[in-house]
Amino acid sequence: MSEFLSYFRQDRLPHIWCPGCGHGTVTGALVRAIDRLGLDKNKVCVVSGIGCSSRAVGYLDFDTLHTAHGRALAFATGIKMARPDLKVIVMTGDGDCTAIGGNHFIHAARRNIGITTIVMNNETYGMTSGQFSPMTPKGMLGTTAPYGNVERSFDLCELAKAAGATYVGRSTSYHVPLLIDLIEKALQNDGFSVVEAVTQCPTYLGRKNKLGDAVQLLNWIKDQAVNVKAAAVMPKEKLEGKFLIGELHNGPAPEYSAEYGELIARVQRSFENVKGGLWECASNSD
């Protein structure tokens, strides 16, 4: 059986995603990055929220947690702080992460907690069949934007960087080798890492906006992507309506759970004799 398949709960495949949906491709990229790093499967914990993308964790052979809509990062914070030795990964969608989950996203980034967040951005709410999301480009159609989306969308990577994430990268379900490289480096960053993967939703975004099938959608995405290194030497107007792919920020900083670990050590040194806490009543409760 292939090395790659050993990371999956194969009895639960094929997965539920539509033919041509990009979520499978991004999930595969994550698994390939984990395989390259040779992470211990028993020390990896993958947490997700609600939505098409969040069903990914059910197929992965790790400790996996499929939580409430928008709350994956908050659940993951509890896991990371309770077990800083675990490699904690969050798989989330554009709606799950930046709409209902936006508050937890910016705070996890601010704290620089050791969590790698993979945002599978198909620019729509797929599970609920095609409403616009905070990442849907202005002007596009959604079942709740029948006359065109009048809202501006986030630049998720700028948002992550501004909130304090110490590794930020973007790729797409077309640029898979780049996506794997970014995830690999994100997993190695000892802090809050964000990798956005722009991906195709042929069933809803594609159909509603008459962008064709999965392949045509992938080409549509490819045509909007400009590598950050190339963009540096391109005239500004050429970048109009494009988004950057590649490593967008890499500024390591102290990781939150490690900082708290040092706090514990410092406190325990200064309270030598206190085994059971203020009321000695916890002394035998280890």
């Binding site: 790659f4 398949l5 495949l13 997965h15 949906c21 499978g24 595969g28 379900s173 999965a214």
Partner: peptide, 10 residues
């Protein structure tokens, strides 16, 4: 193999 969303080809 890399682009297959269903892990159906290797």
């Amino acid at each position: 193999e890399l682009r297959c969303p269903d892990f159906a080809i290797e």
